[in-house]
Design a protein around this nucleic acid. Structure first.
Lengths: 207, 207
DNA sequence: TTTATAAATATACTGAGTATCAATTATTAC
DNA sequence: GTAATAATTGATACTCAGTATATTTATAAA
């Protein structure tokens, strides 16, 4: 079980580095092929051939075809970064700070990849639904964050409900940005998210 | 194109009646088999055999295996019933009235079928996600309802965001009821939904 | 070099979902 | 009632995602 860490000072061993590279190659080829000939029209076989691996190996790196588009999506960063925000901020203020940071720091390279992904995510029905699920799954993370900042239990009624509202607001931002879309989707998404959160903090007035 | 309505006074023709019966049979058999031997372990082939139809005919009635569980789910009723509530009610008040009505009026027969469905919907991962999507898809309907009652556009920022919050609150109620679950899931779900909506109307205070 | 381990692949399978075409069955017109 | 018409069903055959098992190849350690 103990992982190899004997001679190599790099915290990534030779093998692990290669694996990461393979994973990236697969994802890049997949996104390229999806963009070129469509998601449905692209088979896993093709992606594998383009990546010079076998069909079976593909499944060693990604459990499903959809997952190759979803990727990591820096969801963990959102969680971690938000936890690191000062304690005297409300959750919403902390989230706003996190988003600000993420938008500022995203390097161009990453931003382009992200754009390609998002294009697929809002175009292909199968992926749209996969994305919606991802969003809904954040519910539990939000509850945890909220529990930490309020000192309440994550199972508290108000915590649950507030977290639910944040989740829904996130979905709304996603769906709205998807409509306006075109260029700069990610910027639009984050700015909507920020507006929505501020509105929520104000109690969601309808006037 | 003109539909047959010549002699038959019943608004359902002979054929259409039979089709409805077949659809119900398929659904009943599917739910029975799923409950008995599990969702994944049950093939469409089996469901078809039990329903005395061919595998292909199954797909004429339900586009996917998951859809046979989802069914209609009286989502349309919620929409229609809510529209019929008095105009001086807020959307939340109207929704509360609708849920009240639905809980009171559900006949025992239907209630049992609904329970079976819900058991599957919160047990089988594939169906859980399908359900989540259903919930998220209500977003647009809620926006319409809200637009009607506020006189605003369904694309208005506050309408979108408020509708998003309601959606998320619905998801939260679903996930919470799913945890407590056991018996009386549906009652629990609706009562949570009501609590959550009231909390939302109060501006979602965290204290 | 030999040994142990992990990663890649080959083979073969299941089952969902689709397309095409032929066979039935019901509906309508005569 | 019978023939023509249209809808429903079904048979056959296919694609492709995803899985299980066993085998081969590459890597690391000894």
């Amino acid at each position: 079980m103990q992982e190899t860490k004997s001679k190599k000072q790099n915290n990534l061993s030779w093998r692990e580095e290669k694996k990461l590279k393979t994973k990236n190659t697969i994802q890049k080829n997949a996104l390229r092929l999806f963009a070129k000939q469509g998601y449905e029209a692209t088979t896993i076989e093709e992606i594998a051939r383009a990546s010079e691996i076998s069909r079976i190996t593909f499944f060693r790196y990604f459990p499903t075809k959809a997952e190759v588009v979803m990727g990591d999506m820096f969801e963990l960063s959102v969680y971690d970064l938000t936890r690191q925000q000062p304690n005297d901020l409300t959750l919403i203020q902390a989230l706003l700070a996190t988003f600000q940071k993420l938008v500022n720091e995203a390097d161009p390279q990453e931003r382009i990849l992200l754009s390609e992904r998002h294009l697929l995510l809002r175009t292909i029905p199968e992926l749209k639904t996969a994305m919606m699920i991802r969003l809904a799954e954040k519910y539990d993370l939000i509850r945890e964050l909220l529990a930490e900042r309020t000192g309440k239990s994550a199972d508290d009624f108000t915590v649950r409900n507030f977290a639910g509202a944040i989740t829904g607001i996130g979905i709304s931002a996603w769906l709205t940005a998807e409509q306006d879309s075109a260029e700069g989707f990610i910027e639009r998404y984050f700015s909507l998210l920020a507006e929505n959160l501020k509105h929520l903090e104000a109690g969601l007035p309808l006037d």
